[in-house]
């Protein structure tokens, strides 16, 4: 049976179609679901093994990026979410989805079961929205989404609020638990495009089953999405059409097949 992915939508979600394509290419069965349908119990989260929160500007990012959707999830889907996590299922949040996961407290996660926000994604130090491709360094981590991924990954970012920052104790806990999944390969603008603490681009919870990142792996499903593919002779000469972002979604699907 194909693993089932629920791709959560609400007003202002806008990377849902490519996230959907990513999971389909990875071999999953997908459903694009408006949060109203979860709140009204028309659709049950328990029927799915992976929850994906795509990028976009949920509710216009009014107040701050992702905060309104996070509040809605925390207060209206409390039990369903807790159950989903307790069942050992997978959650990925990309860009706005990462912002949502951090604001719900699901990332970086705490030792108490109560969802409390412990980090944030603040305004870029450049003070503006920027779209560019960046080099990422893969870290040693328990993250199931990045298993076996290349040591260096090249992905696009496109955001105004992506500066990961947290109190010193939270940051050191992240390091101790190996929860940092991706770092920007070099410090300093524009390699670290937003000024994140410790060059953090993506983190997971301690189990490695909840993953959030600012870069967009779902925008690199095909090799010709690479901004320099016309220069890369090796890319042009390979028969495979796959882009480097797809492996993240394949890993999730394979994990579900093997474990759930």
């Amino acid at each position: 049976m194909k693993p089932k992915v629920l791709i959560l939508r609400t007003a202002g979600t806008n990377c849902d179609v490519e996230t959907d394509a990513a999971f389909q290419f990875a071999g999953a069965e997908t459903a694009l679901v408006h949060i109203q349908n979860l709140i009204s119990d028309k659709i049950n989260l328990t029927d799915y093994q992976i929850l994906a929160i795509p990028g976009g500007f949920s509710y216009g990012d009014d107040i701050a990026a992702g905060i309104l959707l996070a509040v809605e999830m925390k207060h209206k889907l409390t039990n369903a979410l807790n159950q989903f996590v307790a069942d050992g299922k997978l959650i990925i949040g990309i860009c706005n989805g990462f912002q949502v996961l951090v604001r719900t407290g699901l990332l970086p996660g705490a030792d108490t079961s109560e969802m409390a926000q412990r980090a944030t994604l603040a305004m870029n130090t450049s003070a503006k929205f920027e779209c560019r491709w960046i080099d990422l360094e893969t870290q040693e981590s328990p993250c199931v989404f990045t298993k076996g991924i290349k040591a260096h990954v090249y992905l696009p970012v496109a955001h105004a609020e992506g500066r990961f920052t947290a109190p010193a104790d939270v940051l050191s806990e992240l390091e101790t638990n190996n929860q940092v999944v991706f770092r920007y390969a070099e410090s300093g603008y524009p390699s670290n495009p937003n000024g994140s603490d410790a060059d953090i681009a993506g983190i997971c919870d301690t189990t490695g089953r909840i993953f959030g990142l600012m870069p967009h792996p779902e925008r690199f499903l095909m090799k010709w999405n690479h901004p320099r593919w016309t220069r890369l002779v090796e890319t042009q000469n390979t028969d495979s059409e796959e882009g480097d972002g797809l492996v993240i979604f394949k890993n999730a699907v394979n994990y579900v097949k093997a474990n759930l």
């Binding site: 779209c131 967009h216 925008r219 499903l221």
Partner: peptide, 8 residues
Amino acid sequence: QYDHGVQG
């Protein structure tokens, strides 16, 4: 400042 990559 414009997003060129959205929609994949």
